[in-house]
Write a protein that binds this DNA or RNA. Sequence first.
DNA 1: CTGAAAGCGCTAACAC
DNA 2: GTGTTAGCGCTTTCAG
Lengths: 363, 363
Amino acid sequence: MARQAGGSTGTAPRSIDVARLAGVSQKTVSRVMNGEQYVSGDLRRRVLEAAETLGYRLNHAARALASGRTRSIGVVTLGTALYGPASLLMGLERAVRDTGYTLRVVNTVEGDSTGIAGAVDSLLDQGVDGIVISEPIDEEGGDDVAIRADVPFLVLGAPPPFTAQRVVTSGLVAHQLAQAATEHLLDLGHSTVHHLAGPQRWYAARDRMEGWRATLAAHGRGEPPVIVGDWSAASGYRAGRELAENRDVTAVFAANDDMAIGLIRALLEAGLRVPDDVSVVGLDDIPVAAYVTPPLTTVRQPFDAMARDGLKRLVHAIENPESDPIPVDDPPVSLVVRSSTAPPPDRKTAPTRTTTVPRRTSV
Amino acid sequence: MARQAGGSTGTAPRSIDVARLAGVSQKTVSRVMNGEQYVSGDLRRRVLEAAETLGYRLNHAARALASGRTRSIGVVTLGTALYGPASLLMGLERAVRDTGYTLRVVNTVEGDSTGIAGAVDSLLDQGVDGIVISEPIDEEGGDDVAIRADVPFLVLGAPPPFTAQRVVTSGLVAHQLAQAATEHLLDLGHSTVHHLAGPQRWYAARDRMEGWRATLAAHGRGEPPVIVGDWSAASGYRAGRELAENRDVTAVFAANDDMAIGLIRALLEAGLRVPDDVSVVGLDDIPVAAYVTPPLTTVRQPFDAMARDGLKRLVHAIENPESDPIPVDDPPVSLVVRSSTAPPPDRKTAPTRTTTVPRRTSV
DNA sequence: CTGAAAGCGCTAACAC
DNA sequence: GTGTTAGCGCTTTCAG
């Protein structure tokens, strides 16, 4: 399948070589390789054939130099293997294939004060046509970083953490995720829902918290104090020890599954039963969520759809600098009900749920 | 922090602009930007200053075209958010910063028969100087794909899945991981250890299995039949139901934590106690491993060290085509003992372990 | 519909 | 130590 590198001479064939073999001008080869119109079917065929026999491969560096565009998109990630960010990155890679662009990935250097700005800078340096901030966070300084660049940005799931022109922001998804989790608990009969939030530097964490808050307000429920974790199961565990002392707590929405699992562990150690005494909802649906004890009720993020929609809009902004942006198409979130949630202890009417493992197979 | 794009004119400054401002030749600017020697400190200073005021940014496309090298490294990933592969990718990103190269990431298209070869091809197409196969697997066809390319390859943790020149393979790590897990169980007094393997297309899975097998042999123990899963907790659960029927099973080494968690879940549902009746060791030390019930004993992979060592050797091969490869420096693996392992039921002497959660904080 | 000429911004040899 | 001269392999004008 893989083409041979180099011809008989050892040097890679150029478009002019293809042109000569096909008996056309080099420009015609260029037209064919770029799928431009106004090339007769006959010539196109001959060019393609010549390219095939020569094992021709277009030189992207030359193309970029001549055209001023690299056809690559840069992604700023946080450099963690957390399930959410990692899944988003994979979704982006999957989605980018259909756009004709390639991906350049850069982590924000942890501990570096330049943070996202530094990562963006290095991407700009490499000459990308657009940039994706996959998990926006606030910088240490607190001030919005002023990033000026001539390429469009896609900021996933949050308002842009900086000032830049042509920013294509995506989504109320985080809000919907929190709403689904909170309403599920409310529907079960809990009078209110506690929240174990993610680190507040993350927009994702703040948005989920806002969604929870708005949902409680919409239902006229009181808002208990928020506990803030750092996404880790360890922080969930600490929060759990705290919550276990408060007998009023009957329902908790944790901003991610890892924290939910740590939380449950602490509750269990404190002698509380889950879900009989306290219900817990997570967020992410990590691969093991269905197999911990008790199997975790959680909310699943539409990573692939988010990546696809966001990239589509980013590419549109890249290729149509002047035109209006494509409207956001927020994909639906889905609640996965398992066995960590139940009606509150007081008014329990339904029988205790069995802890049968649901049918899920995906890796 | 971020430089302004474009000068007053709106066009990006070129090296010749810097040269004029600094009053030197363009070649001198080039020398300075590349950190070459034979430039007086004075000139270097002036050039740097001029570049700074102009907001000069080297054009990588032009450099690549002129030099024939892109200073980028391609990574072939499997496109899963599994903890292991995702962590390795993050480790590679972290490690690549120190080398002066950038990363291009491509997933193997799932279901595409060209698989790794196709991904490599697209990377070659983009013009990378070297390629990393981060999680080698066998192709559907079964035959080794003949990949001929003029760039060196780094195949992490396994022998190369194809024939290519200048391949820098890395490691016996998988073998050591399996050995650590198996010996821990043997040391506890178990007469033998069962193995729940990963999908056999993956070299990582086969290597772990070989390590387990070799360790049993070295201790003169019998080798029970292997059960094969697919890395998922669901497959671990299925394996657990099977193993639960065999009362001879007292110790299981699962090839990753997800399967271990699914396995434990099935064991618990079958009325068996972990670790009192059956001990289980996982592999990866995923973030929630310390907080499931019981906290999981597992083996941690040295992702960052593997990535760093591998990349160092790959870059050496890129920059010194003729010289000998740098020898592999396999980093140490570490066993994390928690509460899913104990002596076998028969000869148990030590008291049942408490299930206190150990002190781990990392995300 | 097709072709000819003119660079894109940098590095690689060579001179000085 | 430093400068000069040629391209690298494409895409862009602009003619036909």
